[in-house]
Design a protein around this nucleic acid. Structure first.
Lengths: 160, 160
DNA sequence: TCCATATAGTCAAGATACTTGACGATTTTC
DNA sequence: GAAAATCGTCAAGTATCTTGACTATATGGA
């Protein structure tokens, strides 16, 4: 098709936000596809974002709400889904009659283990592609940039 | 609250995917907030993702669909919204009776200009935070990683 | 002790951003 | 020309969020 080749191939955006977005989306798509291929068909990106805030030994639902950047109702709905899938379970908090403790089921913990090995595989591919040094520099810069919910939550202390 | 301090502050994930996701979300939230503050109340992250693929001199809707990672119906719905907001316009393609050409209105072009200056402001803050060298290394690594739709689309040509 | 207030979680309703499936109009291919 | 592919649209449904209203429990004085 000559017509296609005639078209100006206009450059895509090349600012930090665009690059981060593309890289993030690509990573998530790769990870989610591998998780589903590994038998965890319930795995979605929204759920992944929440699971990232649930420690292996569980967390109080209220604390989870604080850490996630979304509303408590959204957290609840995601938890409802994960609970229905048998990935997490909610138990009453013995310390606080109002509270719930969110923890992983055996199925959930198995998924975490699979997830860990998939992460390593992806990371290995990234290192192959851009080299160990550049990869280290990438992680280093992202760590020091230190955006995200933890950094935002620290503002409660108002040290600045 | 002593009880809070007693709780183990379990570490958040620290792999490349998590860091990219956090950084990407933070950038997008910052950018979208600044755009809305600049009077572009119609600006959302989903729309931003699509606009990133629309060159200043327009694009055929079919080409836009190819570049975006979403379904053609999703593209259409986003375009419907952007057209209703007066940001883009769709004109019949004189070369192809089936096709449409998507282009910016004056309002859309003005938003692009504001967006450019906001991007520069955010980038300046990032450089202040992590230093010029680290920022350059970050961009360098992300560019060479070269994930995203353009990389995928280039596979059609099979130059590799 | 009792009451005001804050916190934890839930229920309900709605918006946004997607999806798949079906379809008509046009172009390309043979 | 007629079959097949492409382009855009319409319709319906799902996932992921939102805000608002509400109940139950806990906390912290008077």
């Amino acid at each position: 098709m000559v017509k296609e080749l005639d078209e100006k191939t206009e450059a895509l955006p090349d600012h930090i936000g665009w690059r981060l977005w593309q890289a993030s989306r690509a990573w998530q798509a790769e990870f989610a596809a591998a998780m589903r291929a590994a038998g965890h068909g319930w795995f979605t990106e929204a759920r992944a974002g929440l699971l990232g805030h649930i420690a292996r030994d569980g967390i109080r639902q209220a604390a989870l709400i604080d850490r996630s950047a979304i509303s408590k109702q959204a957290v609840q709905q995601l938890l409802d889904g994960l609970e229905a899938e048998g990935v997490v379970q909610r138990l009453p908090d013995p310390q606080d009659g109002r509270g719930k403790l969110v923890g992983y089921t055996r199925k959930g913990l198995a998924a975490l283990r699979d997830g860990d090995s998939i992460k390593l595989q992806i990371e290995r591919r990234y290192v192959e592609r851009i080299g160990q040094q550049r990869f280290a520099a990438l992680m280093d810069a992202l760590r020091i940039l230190d955006v995200g919910p933890a950094a935002a939550a620290d503002k409660d202390t108002e040290v600045q």
